[in-house]
Amino acid sequence: MYQNTKAAFTKLKNNKFFELSVICVIIISALEIGAKTFPLSNTAVSITSLLDTFITVFFLFEISIRFLTDDNKKHFFKSGWNVFDTLVVVISLIPVNDSEMALLARLVRVFRVLRMVSVVPELRVLINSLIKALPQLGYVVLLMFIIFYIYAAIGSFLFSTINPVLWGDIAISMLTLFRVMTFEDWTDIQYETMEVYPYSWIYYMTFIFFTAFAFLNMVIGIVVNVMEEEHAKEKNKNEPSLSELKQEISELKSLILQLDEKQKQ
């Protein structure tokens, strides 16, 4: 009985229509969350409440199927995505109204949109790549912070009398430099200081070269490299390894030899 039920649930889980249904429900959940940010009529509030109940029940059903069809249930919660999905579903069961944890329940319902990442394998590869790239990115970010700090100190010393709003202290100067790095009206800041220091353009050009061009390209290069490694790992998982092929060939050879011996006898 259990095996038949498990086989039926496994067939349902692997069904493309069911996978599309999960994605559609996640999209509906996102739209329902967005709709609640607008002023709604009593009818619309009732509809969103019914939708919220349906979405919660559907997600509970879907995570239950995934757990029941897992071959190794002890390792089910060793996957970070399974833990995340389970927490979102369990906390979504908290009633939104008349509860001390209503705010938590509402916030968790927002994170239901992130379940799209756990459902779509390509998105999982992207997130895993970003997470695995963090240790390497940390050194680049640290070096970028050092450059920011040096340039902010220089800018504060030189330009604080010109515009204390932008260069009053080192913290404000770093925010101003972030604005320069993102090219948000940075030429206005440059021309303002050039009226007092004509060669201050060198300060801005070198800062933009180090941050916007050099370091950001380093970040992109690291992320792309890790993404390629993750795609290669996923491809290797789906394709049989050389050792597995050799083992299968040796098993086939042994079977053929056994059949030949039986025929001779």
Rank of each mutant, 00 (worst) to 15 (best):
residue 192 E to C: 02
residue 129 S to V: 05
residue 224 V to T: 08
residue 195 E to I: 10
residue 145 F to S: 15
residue 227 M to A: 11
residue 145 F to D: 06
residue 129 S to R: 06
residue 138 G to Y: 09
residue 126 L to S: 10
residue 105 A to I: 02
residue 176 T to E: 03
residue 233 K to S: 06
residue 217 N to V: 03
residue 239 E to K: 12
residue 202 I to F: 15
residue 157 F to Q: 10
residue 172 I to K: 13
residue 114 L to R: 04
residue 109 R to C: 04
residue 219 V to Y: 01
residue 192 E to H: 03
residue 226 V to H: 01
residue 109 R to F: 15
residue 208 I to K: 10
residue 213 F to D: 02
residue 107 L to C: 13
residue 126 L to W: 11
residue 183 F to V: 05
residue 193 T to V: 15
residue 112 R to Y: 06
residue 220 I to M: 05
residue 143 L to F: 10
residue 152 A to E: 00
residue 135 P to T: 03
residue 143 L to A: 08
residue 132 K to L: 09
residue 221 G to A: 15
residue 165 V to I: 07
residue 129 S to D: 03
residue 105 A to K: 04
residue 193 T to I: 07
residue 192 E to K: 13
residue 111 F to K: 06
residue 103 L to C: 02
residue 213 F to G: 00
residue 207 F to Q: 06
residue 147 I to M: 07
residue 132 K to V: 03
residue 124 R to H: 02
residue 144 M to E: 13
residue 176 T to N: 09
residue 206 T to N: 10
residue 138 G to R: 11
residue 236 N to S: 14
residue 114 L to T: 14
residue 228 E to H: 13
residue 189 I to R: 07
residue 112 R to L: 11
residue 175 L to N: 12
residue 231 H to A: 14
residue 233 K to Y: 07
residue 189 I to H: 06
residue 198 P to G: 08
residue 163 N to F: 00
residue 141 V to F: 15
residue 213 F to T: 10
residue 139 Y to W: 10
residue 160 S to T: 09
residue 191 Y to M: 12
residue 151 Y to I: 01
residue 186 W to C: 06
residue 229 E to M: 09
residue 129 S to F: 04
residue 121 P to F: 03
residue 149 Y to K: 07
residue 155 G to T: 02
residue 219 V to F: 04
residue 182 T to S: 08
residue 217 N to A: 02
residue 166 L to P: 00
residue 139 Y to M: 13
residue 239 E to S: 12
residue 223 V to K: 03
residue 199 Y to I: 09
residue 141 V to E: 04
residue 224 V to E: 14
residue 147 I to C: 07
residue 116 M to I: 12
residue 118 S to W: 01
residue 181 M to H: 05
residue 151 Y to D: 00
residue 214 A to F: 15
residue 126 L to K: 11
residue 173 S to A: 14
residue 144 M to H: 01
residue 136 Q to N: 10
residue 187 T to L: 12
residue 121 P to E: 03
residue 224 V to C: 00
residue 141 V to T: 08
residue 134 L to W: 07
residue 200 S to Q: 07
residue 237 K to A: 09
residue 220 I to N: 09
residue 187 T to F: 15
residue 156 S to M: 08
residue 171 A to L: 11
residue 203 Y to A: 05
residue 106 R to Q: 14
residue 176 T to R: 05
residue 165 V to W: 00
residue 144 M to F: 02
residue 102 A to F: 02
residue 194 M to W: 07
residue 130 L to I: 11
residue 209 F to E: 08
residue 114 L to F: 15
residue 178 F to K: 13
residue 104 L to F: 11
residue 170 I to Y: 04
residue 108 V to W: 04
residue 195 E to T: 12
residue 184 E to C: 07
residue 207 F to W: 05
residue 158 L to G: 00
residue 186 W to Q: 06
residue 175 L to Y: 05
residue 171 A to R: 09
residue 198 P to W: 08
residue 151 Y to W: 07
residue 186 W to E: 08
residue 170 I to K: 09
residue 124 R to Y: 01
residue 110 V to Q: 08
residue 206 T to Y: 06
residue 171 A to G: 05
residue 190 Q to H: 04
residue 104 L to H: 04
residue 206 T to E: 07
residue 177 L to F: 05
residue 105 A to L: 05
residue 199 Y to A: 06
residue 222 I to N: 00
residue 185 D to V: 03
residue 138 G to I: 09
residue 173 S to Y: 02
residue 109 R to G: 15
residue 218 M to Y: 10
residue 119 V to Q: 14
residue 119 V to C: 05
residue 166 L to V: 01
residue 190 Q to E: 15
residue 184 E to A: 12
residue 209 F to R: 12
